[in-house]
Amino acid sequence: MTSARQLYLYIVKNITVYPEKEAQAISYMLLEHYMRLRNIDVLVDRPIPENTAQPDWDSIIKRLNNNEPVQHIIGSTEFCGLEFRVSSAVLIPRPETEELVQMVTRDYAEPDKNISILDIGTGSGCIAIVLARFLPHVSVHAWDVSDEALEVAKENARQLIADVTFAKQDMLNVTFPLPGNIVQFDCLVSNPPYVTYSEAESMRPNVLRFEPHEALFVEDNDPLLFYKAIADFGVHHLKQQGKCYVEINEHFGAETKKVFEERNYKKVEILRDINGKDRFVRAIWA
C-alpha cells in the first residue's frame, strides 16, 4: 500500500469480526499508533514514502479476527485525553467511566485543604490517575487486590506523572491498619465488578476471552456484593458529608441505591450515562 487511504481500506476490508463502523474506528487507531497517520491523512490520501517501516499488517489483522482487543495489540488506550497502558491484567477503560471521573472532578474542583480520595479496585489506575492530574490539590489513594494490575497502574502513574499512593487491598476482606494509616476519606470512588455470570452469554468474545474475569463478574446470587462492601467501608471510613461514587449494572439501579439507603447514606441518587442508562450511584455519608 502506497497511500494512507489504500492502507486504511485494506485493513477495514480484512477485519471480519467487527461491524464496518467498528472496523473503521479500529483502523484509524492502528494507523495513528503505528504510522502516525491521522484521519485527515486518510481523507486526503496522503502518500506513504517507500522507505517507511510498517508492521506486519496481516499478523495484526489475524489477531483482531481472533477477537484480541486492538488496545492489547497496541498496548494502550485513551482515557480522559490521556494514554494508558493496558494488558490482560486490567480492564480496558470504558467511556462510561470517563463520566464517573467527570462527576468527581466537578464536585471537588474547588481547592480545599486535606481532601483525600480513595479509588477502590483501580485496575489500570485510570480513575485515580486522572483525578490526581485534574485535581492536584487532592490526595489520591488507589487499591487493588491484583499484583499484576497494580504494576500496570504504577507504570501508568509514572508515565503520566501522577501522584497516587497505591496499595494492595482486598475490598471484601480489608486488612488493618489501612495503607498509609489513613483512617477516613472525603471521597470513595469505584468501578467494581458488576456483570453477572448469566449476562456473559451476551458479551462479546474480545471481552470474555481477553479481559480479567475477576474485574468483571459477580455471582448471580449476590450481584451487589461489592456495593455492600463499599457502603459498609464508607460507614466507618468516610468523613461526615463524605461522598461515594460507584459505577453500576444498569439492571440493578434501584437495588444498588437501596444498599446505600439501608446504611443511612443521604441524598442517594441514580445517575444515567450518556446513553440514558442507569450507570452511577452517588451518595453522601451524613
Rank of each mutant, 00 (worst) to 15 (best):
D56L: 04
N65T: 10
L43R: 06
P69D: 01
S59Y: 02
N67H: 15
C80L: 05
T97A: 01
P47V: 04
V86Y: 01
S59C: 06
L100C: 07
T52W: 05
E83K: 09
E68L: 02
P47D: 12
E50K: 14
V86E: 00
P47Y: 02
G75V: 04
R63F: 04
G75N: 09
L91K: 03
S87R: 04
L37M: 14
E68I: 12
I73H: 00
I60H: 00
P55S: 03
R94H: 08
I92Y: 00
S76G: 05
I74K: 03
S76N: 11
R85T: 11
L64S: 03
T97R: 01
L43H: 05
V42Y: 05
I60Y: 00
P55F: 03
P69N: 08
E98P: 06
L82C: 07
P49C: 14
L37S: 09
E83V: 10
Q71P: 03
E50S: 11
P93D: 08
G81E: 11
C80D: 02
I73D: 00
P95C: 13
Q71V: 07
N66G: 13
S76A: 14
E99T: 15
M35E: 12
I40D: 13
P69T: 08
V70F: 05
P69F: 05
Y34D: 14
E50F: 10
D41V: 07
I92C: 08
N67F: 15
R36V: 07
I40E: 15
T52N: 00
V44T: 15
L43D: 06
V44Y: 13
D56N: 14
V90W: 00
I60C: 01
N39S: 11
P93A: 07
F84P: 00
L82T: 01
S87K: 03
F84W: 06
Q71C: 07
E68V: 09
N51G: 08
V90R: 01
E96M: 11
R63H: 10
A53N: 14
P49A: 10
I61C: 03
I48M: 11
P49I: 01
S76M: 07
E83F: 04
P47E: 03
V42N: 11
P93V: 09
R38V: 06
S59L: 15
R38H: 09
D41Y: 02
M35G: 04
N67C: 13
I61R: 08
Y34S: 02
S76W: 00
G81A: 11
R36K: 15
W57A: 00
A89I: 01
I73T: 01
P49K: 09
L82M: 12
L91G: 04
I73M: 10
R46H: 12
P93F: 05
I92S: 02
N66T: 07
N66H: 13
T97Y: 03
I61M: 08
N66V: 05
I73P: 00
N65Q: 10
P93K: 00
E68M: 10
E78K: 09
E50L: 13
L91C: 03
N66C: 12
L43T: 09
D41H: 14
F79H: 10
Q71E: 12
E99R: 11
S88Q: 15
